[in-house]
Design a protein around this nucleic acid. Structure first.
Lengths: 221, 221
DNA sequence: TAGTTTTTTTAGATGTATCTAAAAAGCTGA
DNA sequence: TCAGCTTTTTAGATACATCTAAAAAAACTA
């Protein structure tokens, strides 16, 4: 845990964190390969290496989980990524669909002093421009009671507080229908045959497909 | 010139720029090795590679100079480095002796949009916290009529506008004698046997060695 | 200019991150 | 359960950046 990690190693840790954070208990070789956009063979090599460094628990054919050290490092990477996103969005006025890729690079810069000063400079934000919580320097996440738009009952009134995909395509689509964090929705209809929704927002009616609604995080409002 | 360069390649370009910017017409293998802290053999390998990419002119045993493309890239790196230094100093309130090393990492992030937005965010500064000029996005440098403190006549009054070494040791020493950009000096004495100076600054007398005075850039004031 | 010293290059390794192709292990369903 | 499919690993290459040791070229200097 004393040695600095390469960018590549850091990206693998983040990928395993991301995979095991949601549904899966362990991150399989193929899932990781997909996440870091490489071959399964390369992943196997890296898993051995990270296992030797005690950052993951890995056994042949059984996938990987993060060790406490691995979790700590991955959480700090997430903290850095999200704080840089706030900087790019709030200070440099980048549109939200462009911040992810630049933050991917900035997050690899290693200086605790830098990131803590940045945190203060930004006013210690607790959520990033996609609505994701920013871990504290101790690794604690702020939790929020939120649900996905596809799971709230008809006639509910909700506020968009986050998006669970950060791709430029998805966010650009949301821009085009004038949906952003803070946008209020009232569910006016549910179509059970394709799970699409009709909602009222900004005084207009919108059709939201299931593919979109399951990636919109909302709270009652 | 279309391919992205590795951090290492960029560091070599910067090193050659730095060497040929001052005295030397060409950058020798050994000078470069010293600058990037590696062996002469490694430098030879890299010079061949950069020559193949048309970023430098290199002939065996004859050292290297930058091509126009190489100059353009090196200048953009200098621009990025110095703008990040302004950010770290002005916005994050880092002391000036700590900003160089972090900017070394930040300068490798590639996004013209990022750096131009940063420039605007910082108010389009023309000099960095060490007093070095920041190139414009077109690669133009602001020049200033300045001289080194060791070369001004006795009884002159001058203002410190730059330092030509950025090492943490040197800058920490200047902090300790309460010298910073903008500090005014009056030369009260010159000791010809060791070229040290006595100066009046902030109402107190200081002894400045030749080693220090030749790295202080001043303008009349 | 011829010998000596310095500088630079070549040759041959090492370690990291990657790949493809093929083998091995694991899973699944008739 | 075992044949076939999927997943994962191994084996063997490639490319990059680096090193040390030794050879070659260039630069001094007496």
């Amino acid at each position: 845990m004393e040695n600095k990690l390469s960018h590549t190693e850091e990206n693998y840790l983040k990928a395993i964190f991301k995979i095991t954070e949601r549904a899966e208990k362990v991150a399989s070789t193929n899932k990781i390969a997909e996440q870091v956009q490489t071959s399964a063979a390369s992943v196997t090599d890296m898993l051995k290496k990270l296992n030797d460094k005690s950052l993951i628990n890995y056994e042949k054919y059984k996938g990987a989980t993060l060790t406490p050290d691995g979790i700590r490092l991955a959480t700090q990477l997430v903290r850095k990524h999200r704080l840089w996103e706030v900087f790019l969005y709030d200070k440099l006025k980048f549109p939200w669909e462009q911040i992810h890729d630049i933050a991917e690079e900035l997050e690899h810069i290693n200086s605790d002093d830098l990131i803590n000063r940045l945190d203060n400079f930004l006013g210690n934000p607790r959520f990033d421009p996609h609505g994701d919580p920013i871990p504290t320097s101790e690794g604690k996440f702020m939790l929020r009671n939120q649900s996905t738009l596809d799971s709230v009952p008809i006639h509910s009134k909700v506020i968009l507080v986050g998006v669970s995909h950060h791709s430029s395509e998805f966010l650009t689509y949301l821009n085009s229908i004038n949906v952003k964090l803070g946008t209020k929705f009232k569910i006016t209809g549910k179509n059970s045959y394709d799970n699409s929704l009709t909602v009222e927002s900004n005084g207009t009616q919108l059709l939201i497909t299931h593919e979109v609604s399951k990636n919109l995080l909302v709270k009652p409002g």
